[in-house]
Write a protein that binds this DNA or RNA. Structure first.
Lengths: 109, 109
DNA sequence: AAATAATATGCGTGTTTACGCAGATATGGA
DNA sequence: TCCATATCTGCGTAAACACGCATATTATTT
């Protein structure tokens, strides 16, 4: 069974949405509540077309769901696990930074 | 407080290691046991220098730790949370794929 | 049917990433 | 010291990405 490689490819492709700080910020914003494009854009102080492009990436990968209401498009997180994993990943990063900080302090003393 | 942006940047940068299928495969391999470069390379059927480069990326971000034993470098996962988050992210992806598969079946019936 | 508001899309450009290959290091042993 | 083994680094190229801006699409209102 060597479709392992294929699964890793899908997995990496899905995770690509996290390789951009704006998309992570969008994920955390949507974690609080459903939002439309210009709400997100003004909350982040970023131009609307740019946010729309990032949302398109997240839509394609199935990270977010969309719902139309009149002219507005409301976005939500498709699966809460995505945010959960993202938070755990951030915790791991913070712990790692603290560990490295400790090591530097040990060397300096 | 607008160092939020800076945190999102660090977060995204840390998560970049997941945007490549080979690095995800490396993470899962190291999840089983400590391994040296050529063990990883032959397990994955990838050239050693390429694996070394991917490990360098993971080292820089603090995703993996290294230990030298003679001429060999043994790699381990620095923080189990990293693998945990990665697994949850994969679960989210699989659930999402199943959801989309269901939707297509509904439309076709 | 126009005009307007909200999003989405296409394109050009500068930046980053992946990876093969050649050459450089570092360690242990003859 | 010289050689072999294991790993790392530098460089060139091709592909992917981010983002600004202009334009297109979609739905509401008049």
């Amino acid at each position: 069974m060597n479709n392992h490689k294929e699964l890793y490819k899908l997995h990496a492709d899905f995770c690509k949405f996290m390789s951009n700080p704006k998309r992570i910020e969008i994920l955390f914003l949507l974690g609080e509540k459903e939002m439309c494009v210009d709400e997100i854009a003004s909350a982040m102080e970023v131009k609307v077309p740019n946010i729309s492009q990032h949302l398109a990436v997240m839509r394609e990968k199935g990270v977010v769901d969309v719902r139309r209401e009149g002219t507005k498009m409301y976005y939500t997180i498709a699966n809460p696990k995505t945010l959960q994993a993202c938070i755990i990943m951030r915790d791991a990063m913070v712990e790692q930074m603290e560990k490295q900080f400790e090591m530097i302090r040990e060397i300096k003393k």
